[in-house]
Design a protein around this nucleic acid. Structure first.
Lengths: 207, 207
DNA sequence: CGCGATTGTAACATAATGTAACATGAAGCG
DNA sequence: CGCTTCATGTTACATTATGTTACAATCGCG
């Protein structure tokens, strides 16, 4: 009796509700939604698909059991998503797909794309240059291992230490540290802005 | 429910445009804020997230329980030790009992005492000097993070980088790396034997 | 020092959400 | 036809997140 799809006016906005979904189709659609939007809200799925709260929960259970999503209170997020407070040890770089080294990791918080992980400042800076809704960006200071504001940090580019991607880009909390490192291992000490420009120029050159 | 979210338009009931924050996300955001800005003020979090004072307090309680922040009157500051939230930081140094930093860890295999963990080469070398049945000793190369044979490694003692115990003792896979590091950050480049002697001499002097 | 303002916290209330147990109705199958 | 199975709905209850209130603890200031 509550099956809205049978009662829907023809001009209804909720296109999906016009035809009844099989369980499989609905679950597949939910999985897509999670991937596309980063997060789904149970209550919205209830109205969107015109099924009961329990049914949505069962769908999410099935998706979670299949490892496709992770249930959170109120909805679900992508299984790979790292809303978790813990740093994703098994994460791969959102830019180059290499496994993320704990030593050089960068974390970027984008409003639209959530929490992104970069294997090293090279990839991290590239990503930052391509995002326009960054809420925060943190890079790991090479010397002390602390996370620092990526925009305030200093970087040594192309030092004789190849940690990850090339040209090697190493993050330091202070310009003084970067300079001392450069004295020993070469490379060029830059601010965030300069590093950003250099890396992007280098990549464009290749095109 | 009628709480006065003076900062947000009243029409946004649950809209993700303004407050996509579930409890989990909000706590995560707060944790990042603490790391990023060094300190957060409870009252500002209340207005920023549009939740009650109690809710913010509970968030901070949760973050503090997880060891991610330390509550202070009026807000929270980064937990001094916990830069890395996850990780098996259960290990403590067999010499000084400090939690073992993944960055500078040394592993010593003793026939009689089994596998011992040192927080840094300082403690590791001290332990090695006191053990007579060592099967193997590995230290983490500071530059690349690889484990190297502690007896073949080079060490920079008393550089201007205080990572763990004092006098700071930093391990490098090669003498060349140690020298380049010394060029920037000072200290003295030594072999295993020399570092060993220096550290023990320093400690005996205190007695 | 006392006093007011701010902050921390405990206790309770409430709404939203999660979940288990049972009911229903359709489809398939002997 | 009756039976089973499956997806779903309904109901009831547990759990969680949050707000509200009251009060204690602390700070700042005259």
């Amino acid at each position: 009796m509550h099956h809205k799809q049978t009662l829907m006016p023809a001009n209804s906005q909720q296109s999906e509700s016009n035809h009844p979904f099989s369980a499989e189709e609905r679950q597949h659609a939910i999985g897509q939604l999670v991937q596309d939007e980063g997060r789904v809200v149970t209550q919205k799925l209830v109205t969107r698909f015109g099924v009961s709260r329990m049914t949505i929960h069962r769908d999410l259970d099935a998706l979670a059991a299949a490892g496709l999503v992770r249930k959170v209170r109120g909805g679900a997020v992508p299984a790979t998503d790292a809303i978790q407070p813990a740093a994703p040890r098994t994460a791969t770089c959102a830019m180059c797909n290499l496994p993320v080294s704990d030593r050089s990791v960068m974390m970027i918080h984008s409003r639209s794309r959530g929490k992104l992980c970069a294997c090293c400042p090279h990839c991290g800076l590239m990503m930052l240059g391509n995002l326009d809704d960054v809420e925060a960006a943190l890079a790991r200071d090479f010397l002390f291992g602390r996370m620092v504001n990526a925009f305030d940090a200093s970087y040594v580019i192309d030092a004789d230490v190849r940690l990850c991607c090339v040209p090697s880009t190493i993050c330091f909390a202070t310009a003084a540290d970067a300079e001392r490192f450069q004295r020993g291992f070469g490379g060029r000490v830059t601010t965030y802005a300069t590093a950003q420009a250099l890396l992007h120029a280098g990549h464009r050159k290749q095109l």
